[in-house]
């Protein structure tokens, strides 16, 4: 094996080590520590100057106390559960909104399509935080949406949207829509139009050809898009903090509060480790889907 190949193989592993394994190791270590009134606010810390004794003392100080604690307070598992529910519902909602958009893009004239893709990713040019803040202006009780609905006479009293789960759903669907649209568009755009003609030729109506041919063939895109929305939505913290109310329970928010309000780094780290473990399942499924898709393309 020559140097070049070693280098090429090494780079991704170093990347993984530096950006995933090392931070993960640090967080895991904090999760196994105890809270302390110190800087940093946990104990034990590794004292290398004490030599072998120091290392022994360090490992003796680690325990699973925080993991046990998480099972005792129902706040945590309720937050995990509620996060899974919110992430699932928003993923489905994003799919329902995103699929027609992707379909419309794929059906548009060829020369328009690059421009439409541009429009889909255009919101990324503005800070995510600013865009979420602007939703407060739209959804709040005196916001544009309520003003419009009151003016049109559809409602008599302003709707309570902000500070509810509805606002969180709207925020997640809005934020993650491009991640749903783009993979679905990519599969639809590759779809051979003669397959739909063949389906029609064999007796399908337009709509049954859509359900029997278009949807199954865009399945890899639907799966990829759903994971790309579900995985970050599960740990989402900004959207529930800014748009959700006090009743909105999401694990990302709990984690943030443990860190910054409670200054309980060990419990916050434990919450993060368990969140990661929950996410590993969909991440592995996502990888499988990508793998299969690559094999099918060959």
């Amino acid at each position: 094996m020559n140097l070049r190949r070693i280098f090429l193989i090494l780079v991704p592993y170093l990347w993984l080590l530096a950006l995933f394994l090392v931070p993960f190791g640090i967080v895991l270590k904090i999760a196994l520590s105890d809270i302390a009134l110190a800087i940093p606010p946990y104990a034990p810390t590794l004292d290398i100057t004490a030599g072998w004794e120091g290392i022994k003392r360090f490992f003796a100080g680690l325990d699973f106390e925080n993991f046990v604690f998480l099972t005792q307070d129902d706040l945590y598992w309720r937050a995990y559960l509620s996060s899974v529910v919110i992430a699932t519902v928003s993923t489905i909602a994003t799919l329902i909104v995103g699929y027609p958009i992707a379909y419309g893009m794929a059906c548009a004239p060829r020369h328009w399509q690059p421009m439409l893709v541009m429009l889909i990713i255009l919101p990324f040019w503005t800070s995510f935080l600013i865009r979420v803040y602007s939703w407060i202006g739209i959804l709040s009780q005196e916001g544009y949406l309520n003003q419009l609905l009151l003016w049109s006479g559809l409602i008599n009293e302003p709707l309570m949207i902000i500070n509810t789960n509805w606002a969180v759903y709207i925020g997640i669907v809005y934020t993650y829509l491009p991640f749903m649209v783009l993979p679905i568009y990519a599969t639809l755009e590759k779809l051979d139009g003669s397959l739909l003609e063949a389906a029609e030729d064999l007796g399908c109506s337009r709509s049954s050809a859509f359900w029997l041919v278009t949807v199954p063939l865009s399945r890899p895109g639907i799966i990829a898009g759903s994971f790309l929305v579900f995985i970050p939505a599960l740990g989402e913290f900004v959207i529930p903090s800014l748009l959700g109310g006090s009743k909105t329970l999401m694990i990302g928010k709990v984690l943030w509060e443990e860190f910054f309000s409670n200054r309980d780094w060990p419990v916050a780290s434990t919450v993060a480790i368990i969140l990661l473990l929950i996410l590993i399942i969909p991440i592995i499924l996502f990888q499988r889907n990508e793998q299969k898709q690559r094999e099918a393309d060959q």
């Binding site: 003669s194 397959l195 063949a198 029609e200 030729d201 399908c204 109506s205 063939l217």
Partner: peptide, 17 residues
């Protein structure tokens, strides 16, 4: 097309993958 007693074999075969 779906109501015609005509079937077509496509140039590209158009088999459902």
């Amino acid at each position: 097309p779906n109501k015609r007693a005509v079937n077509m074999m496509f140039q590209s075969y158009a088999l459902f993958p």
